[in-house]
Design a protein around this nucleic acid. Structure first.
Length: 199
DNA sequence: CAGTGGATGCTCT
DNA sequence: GAGCATCCACTGT
């Protein structure tokens, strides 16, 4: 209903990430992530701040987590359980190790490429989980430290309002009670559902 | 469905 | 050597 006085696909600037992870994480829900044109709207993320015992940067800078200590608006990619890659967006400022883990998105662009990489047909399982998402988008260690405001990465501001819910993070043992997992309520493309409120 | 356990590579209380 | 910000296959109801 609005005139076309603004771009439909405003790209997020670096300033978007120069904020607290606790602001950035919910704001990322509904943002379209494309890697070489392949991706879709983000439906699930988790926040890890610099004082968080569950965060990789908590114990100080190491070779693996160096990107987390770098400037914001860059990728931090690490290997999980020796098998999978996981993608984070670095936030705040250089020297402060905080990041948002991208856990799931709705496959919408380049679905054929995703299916070929994953060797899975079910749309729901293509990007439902951090390891699956990276496999579908072709993200590996090679992309650790990559800037997020330039190709091959595209981040497009969300066009529609979404209902963002939060809950405990997945797969961690330390500080597991902190409700820093955010997602689209009721999305079919989550790695796992959010606990429903009591009826 | 739920629960369990293996694969696999890297980091470091 | 332990411990992972995971995924999948397999078991048993």
């Amino acid at each position: 209903m609005t005139p076309e006085d603004e771009s439909d696909t405003l790209s997020l600037g670096r300033g978007f990430f120069a904020r607290s992870v606790h602001e950035v994480a919910p704001d990322l829900i509904g943002v379209t992530l494309l890697f070489d044109g392949v991706g879709g709207p983000i439906v699930e993320v988790e926040a890890y701040d610099h004082e968080d015992p569950a965060a990789h940067g908590y114990g100080g800078r190491t070779e693996r987590n160096a990107s987390m200590f770098g400037p914001p608006a860059h990728a931090y990619v690490y290997r999980s359980y020796g098998v999978h890659w996981c993608l984070n967006f670095v936030c705040e400022e250089a020297g402060v190790a905080s990041a948002v883990l991208v856990r799931a998105l709705e496959p919408r662009h380049g679905v054929d490429a995703m299916r070929a990489r994953r060797r899975v047909d079910d749309l729901r399982l293509l990007c439902a989980g951090p390891g699956r998402l990276c496999q579908a988008l072709g993200i590996t260690r090679d992309h650790d430290g990559l800037p997020l405001d330039r190709p091959p990465v595209e981040l497009l501001a969300r066009e529609d309002d979404v209902e963002v819910v939060s809950g405990p993070r997945v797969g961690i043992t330390r500080a597991a009670e902190r409700p820093w997992r955010y997602g689209v309520a009721g999305s079919r493309f989550l790695s796992r559902p959010f606990a429903r409120r009591r009826a």
